[in-house]
């Protein structure tokens, strides 16, 4: 499938990995892909903006959503009676400021390869189908955005939360992808 990706679609996939690395994510899901698509000039970004979205806001929301899904989940720990703020305070007293966050980064760095979630893989597969549907031999950034918005996914939820009219965004993505 990847051999049919255009240059911008390929770089979106590579950028999604960098987004995941920077956020210390265990996995790459459709939100990382969304950040990558929205942050670089291309068909997807244009479609988002023409579809009435504030691209900066979309990126900020996606990043916030990714961070809220940090493995060291504040709310989940509180539910079993652990006060993460207190743990952090005591840990930092011995190991210095930001020690717990640093340890998290160290653990992530060990993992060289960050896997795609089934949801992100599905988005990529749907992008292929969207390209076929639109009669395109190549898969470009617009198709990736169409794939990401075709079925329920964390990335699509971020767009909906940002107030996106998904049908409108999809129409712009289709138009942009066909025009190329």
């Amino acid at each position: 499938m990847f051999e049919r990706f255009t240059k911008d679609a390929r770089s979106a996939v590579v950028d999604a990995q960098q987004v995941a690395r920077a956020a210390h994510s265990d996995q790459i899901d459709s939100r990382h892909l969304l950040v990558a698509l929205a942050e670089s000039e291309g068909l997807a970004r244009t479609a988002l903006a023409d579809g009435g979205l504030d691209v900066t806001d979309v990126v900020a929301r996606a990043r916030a959503s990714i961070e809220a899904g940090d493995a060291l989940d504040h709310g989940a720990l509180a539910a079993v009676g652990i006060d993460l703020d207190e743990v952090t305070r005591r840990t930092e007293a011995t190991f210095g400021e930001g020690a717990l966050a640093r340890a998290g980064r160290v653990l992530r760095v060990r993992r060289k390869h960050i896997p795609f979630t089934p949801d992100a893989k599905k988005s990529l597969e749907l992008a292929l189908r969207e390209a076929i549907r639109l009669g395109s031999k190549e898969i470009n950034g617009g198709h990736l955005l169409l794939g990401l918005t075709r079925a329920e996914s964390p990335g699509r939820r971020v767009l909906a939360d940002a107030g996106a009219d998904l049908e409108r965004v999809r129409r712009h993505a289709e138009g942009a992808s066909e025009a190329v």
Binding site: A71, L72, D73, L77, A79, V80, I82, T91, A103, G104
Partner: peptide, 24 residues
């Protein structure tokens, strides 16, 4: 789902504390 999220968070917390303690 909540219980499993808590287990995952506890594991992550234990891993981080282990890394810090072993290093020290």
């Amino acid at each position: 789902a909540d219980g499993l999220r808590a287990v995952r968070a506890l594991r992550e917390l234990a891993d981080r504390l282990e890394a810090l303690q072993v290093e020290r």
